[in-house]
Amino acid sequence: MKLTISKKININRAIRKASFIMIIILMIFVLVASNEITRHKVAITTQPLNRCLNTNSLPCTDISKKTTSEPFIPDAKLNAQQRFLSAIARKLPTIPQPGTYEYTLLRTYGAVFVNQDVGIKLPQQDIFDNEKETQDFQATLTMGHVDATNDCYLQKSAADALNKARVQQQIPLKSGYGSGDCTRTFNTNLRFWHKYANEQVLAKVKQGKETKILGLVAPPGTSQHLLGLAIDLRVGSKEQRKALNQNGWFQTVENDTPHWTYVGLSEENLSLFGFNKQVIRGITYWITPL
């Protein structure tokens, strides 16, 4: 049966009206979904953090909906520990339980996991078990050369930031030139450990009976140097420290005077991310709140 022109017009109007309504519904759905995603990305509440901290079982993974490619600002209403954990939860999939060896290491060396520089890369754990595991991770890194050194390399963002600081001030490496001050292999980390400690000391560290040694040397597979985000320097003036701080480098391992960590934050933001400022024998350290 043939349709009249009038009926055709009415049908077309009905189709356009239905299409318009569907578009509006779709737009509303997209906006709601987008808002929900955004809300989950930025909303870090105390409830999941407290549940994570108070649970007696491992692993502790349900801290937040986390992404690693967007700038992050901790919720100022959280306490320092919660702000710190909410930041590292975006980088480290599993947060170790308090009292464990992994948690002890995170407390001492975990400052790197707060780093918000999108140019750096972090591992999925805070301990490497052997040389192969270390090499596999280091093979994925984009490295940069530290100017005026023989073979000192760091992750490129860290190297670039350090080079900027060294343009402002003369800041020599601890040894003066060597790669041992910069990114290290697992075996180099192990060699340094055996220089200052042994298996008996390591057993005490794992049991929580010894922590002072961690300010002198890192246990095998745990050094920030393995990540290409730490360097040992000879720093003796306020001007040198200021230049390093202005470029995201801070002392984060208590009593390890030559050790500097690339945190990638401004000094003004360290407290916001939970760091505690401690002045020990005239040196300012920014310590994790764990």
Rank of each mutant, 00 (worst) to 15 (best):
M1L: 03
M1G: 03
K2N: 09
K2L: 11
T4L: 08
T4S: 14
T4K: 12
I5F: 14
I5K: 14
I5P: 15
I5L: 15
I5W: 15
S6Q: 15
S6Y: 09
K8G: 12
K8N: 08
I9N: 10
I9F: 12
I11F: 01
I11A: 08
I11R: 05
I11K: 09
N12F: 08
R13W: 11
A14H: 08
A14Q: 08
A14S: 14
A14R: 05
A14C: 07
A14F: 12
I15P: 08
R16T: 10
K17R: 14
S19A: 11
S19W: 04
S19K: 04
F20H: 11
F20Q: 13
I21D: 01
I21K: 02
I21L: 07
M22G: 04
M22H: 01
I23P: 02
I23T: 02
I24H: 05
I24D: 05
I25T: 01
I25P: 00
L26M: 04
L26A: 06
L26N: 10
L26V: 03
I28C: 06
I28H: 04
I28L: 04
F29S: 00
L31K: 07
V32H: 02
V32C: 00
A33S: 06
S34V: 08
S34A: 12
N35T: 02
E36S: 07
I37T: 02
I37H: 02
I37L: 00
I37S: 03
T38Q: 09
R39L: 09
R39C: 09
R39H: 13
R39N: 14
H40Q: 08
H40L: 05
K41M: 05
K41L: 01
K41Q: 03
A43T: 11
I44N: 00
T45D: 12
T45H: 05
T45Q: 07
T45A: 12
T46F: 00
T46W: 01
Q47H: 14
P48E: 11
L49F: 01
L49Y: 01
L49G: 02
L49C: 00
N50H: 15
N50E: 14
R51F: 09
R51S: 10
C52I: 13
C52A: 11
L53S: 11
L53P: 07
N54S: 12
T55N: 13
T55Q: 13
N56L: 14
S57H: 05
S57N: 13
S57V: 10
S57P: 04
L58W: 06
L58V: 12
C60D: 03
T61R: 13
T61Q: 14
